[in-house]
């Protein structure tokens, strides 16, 4: 399954800003496990996920071509 992965702020410094993932994951929990394996530094970081521009509150099912964004705590204003 293809997923577009975006990252921002200090998370982007670990993962890169934009990646196309071809991964066998069916929800956000599995995606997170995969990301933690790829980038162990992420484990100590605080961030939330947005799926297709909406904050993912709980485990969210992922579909082909979804966009998942890794969002560190906001600091605008």
């Amino acid at each position: 399954m293809k997923i577009k992965l975006l990252a921002f702020g200090q998370i982007a410094e670990i993962t890169g800003e934009q990646t196309e993932l071809a991964a066998d994951v069916c929800d956000t929990t599995e995606l997170l496990q995969l990301l933690y394996e790829k980038h162990p530094e992420l484990k100590s970081k605080s961030f939330k996920l947005a799926v297709n521009q909406k904050m993912a509150q709980d485990v969210t099912v992922l579909n082909e071509n979804d966009t998942v964004a890794l969002l560190p705590p906001f600091s605008g204003g």
């Binding site: 921002f8 906001f74 204003g77």
Partner: peptide, 14 residues
């Protein structure tokens, strides 16, 4: 509005 922007807007300051 200001409080909501601080909390909800995906903006980051380095």
């Amino acid at each position: 509005i200001v409080e909501r922007i601080k909390k909800e807007a995906p903006v980051w300051g380095k």
